[in-house]
Amino acid sequence: MTTVLIADDQPLQRMGVRMLLEGTPGVTPVGEAAHGAEAVRMAAELRPDVVLMAI
Protein backbone atom coordinates (compact mmCIF):
# COMPACT_ATOMS: atom_id res chain seq x y z
CA MET A 1 0.00 0.00 0.00
CA THR A 2 1.27 3.47 -0.92
CA THR A 3 0.60 6.30 1.53
CA VAL A 4 0.18 9.84 0.20
CA LEU A 5 0.26 13.29 1.82
CA ILE A 6 -1.66 15.91 -0.18
CA ALA A 7 -0.41 19.51 -0.03
CA ASP A 8 -2.26 22.37 -1.74
CA ASP A 9 -3.48 25.80 -0.64
CA GLN A 10 -6.90 25.26 -2.24
CA PRO A 11 -9.27 23.21 -0.03
CA LEU A 12 -11.46 22.16 -2.98
CA GLN A 13 -8.42 20.93 -4.89
CA ARG A 14 -7.26 18.89 -1.87
CA MET A 15 -10.73 17.38 -1.49
CA GLY A 16 -10.88 16.39 -5.17
CA VAL A 17 -7.44 14.78 -5.10
CA ARG A 18 -8.30 12.94 -1.88
CA MET A 19 -11.50 11.57 -3.45
CA LEU A 20 -9.56 10.33 -6.48
CA LEU A 21 -6.89 8.70 -4.33
CA GLU A 22 -9.42 7.06 -2.01
CA GLY A 23 -10.93 5.34 -5.04
CA THR A 24 -7.57 3.99 -6.20
CA PRO A 25 -6.70 0.49 -4.99
CA GLY A 26 -3.42 0.34 -3.09
CA VAL A 27 -3.30 4.08 -2.37
CA THR A 28 -4.16 5.61 1.00
CA PRO A 29 -4.20 9.37 1.65
CA VAL A 30 -2.77 9.91 5.14
CA GLY A 31 -3.09 13.68 5.48
CA GLU A 32 -3.70 17.07 3.93
CA ALA A 33 -1.61 20.22 4.32
CA ALA A 34 -2.71 23.73 3.40
CA HIS A 35 0.79 25.26 3.01
CA GLY A 36 4.45 24.31 2.68
CA ALA A 37 5.46 24.56 6.34
CA GLU A 38 2.54 22.37 7.35
CA ALA A 39 3.45 19.87 4.61
CA VAL A 40 7.03 19.61 5.90
CA ARG A 41 5.83 19.10 9.49
CA MET A 42 3.24 16.50 8.46
CA ALA A 43 5.71 14.66 6.20
CA ALA A 44 8.12 14.30 9.13
CA GLU A 45 5.31 13.15 11.41
CA LEU A 46 3.39 10.83 9.06
CA ARG A 47 6.30 9.54 6.91
CA PRO A 48 4.22 9.08 3.71
CA ASP A 49 5.61 7.23 0.70
CA VAL A 50 4.65 10.15 -1.59
CA VAL A 51 3.96 13.86 -1.09
CA LEU A 52 1.65 15.25 -3.75
CA MET A 53 2.32 19.00 -3.66
CA ALA A 54 1.04 21.83 -5.82
CA ILE A 55 3.72 24.20 -7.05
Rank of each mutant, 00 (worst) to 15 (best):
1 M>H: 14
1 M>R: 15
2 T>G: 01
2 T>L: 15
3 T>V: 10
3 T>Q: 13
3 T>L: 07
3 T>K: 14
4 V>S: 08
4 V>G: 01
5 L>E: 12
6 I>L: 13
6 I>A: 04
7 A>M: 06
7 A>Q: 07
7 A>K: 04
7 A>H: 11
7 A>L: 07
7 A>R: 10
8 D>E: 11
8 D>A: 08
8 D>L: 10
9 D>E: 15
9 D>P: 14
10 Q>T: 13
10 Q>W: 09
11 P>M: 12
11 P>G: 06
11 P>F: 12
12 L>S: 11
13 Q>R: 13
14 R>L: 05
14 R>D: 05
14 R>V: 00
14 R>C: 10
15 M>T: 12
15 M>F: 13
15 M>G: 09
16 G>A: 14
17 V>Y: 07
18 R>Y: 02
18 R>E: 15
18 R>W: 01
18 R>L: 03
18 R>H: 06
18 R>N: 12
19 M>D: 13
19 M>P: 02
19 M>A: 12
21 L>P: 03
21 L>E: 08
22 E>M: 11
23 G>H: 12
23 G>A: 10
24 T>N: 03
24 T>I: 09
24 T>H: 03
25 P>D: 13
27 V>H: 01
28 T>S: 13
28 T>E: 15
29 P>C: 03
29 P>F: 03
29 P>A: 02
29 P>I: 00
31 G>A: 10
31 G>Q: 06
31 G>C: 06
31 G>T: 09
32 E>D: 14
32 E>W: 06
32 E>A: 11
33 A>I: 01
33 A>V: 03
34 A>M: 13
34 A>E: 14
35 H>S: 12
35 H>T: 06
36 G>R: 15
36 G>Q: 10
37 A>I: 07
37 A>Q: 10
37 A>C: 04
38 E>R: 15
38 E>W: 05
39 A>Q: 04
39 A>T: 09
39 A>M: 08
40 V>F: 09
41 R>H: 07
42 M>W: 00
43 A>N: 02
44 A>Q: 12
45 E>P: 03
45 E>C: 04
46 L>I: 00
46 L>P: 02
46 L>Q: 03
47 R>P: 01
49 D>H: 07
49 D>V: 00
50 V>A: 00
50 V>C: 01
50 V>G: 00
50 V>H: 01
51 V>E: 00
51 V>W: 07
51 V>Q: 02
52 L>K: 04
52 L>I: 00
52 L>E: 04
52 L>R: 04
52 L>A: 07
52 L>N: 03
53 M>Y: 04
54 A>N: 15
54 A>W: 01
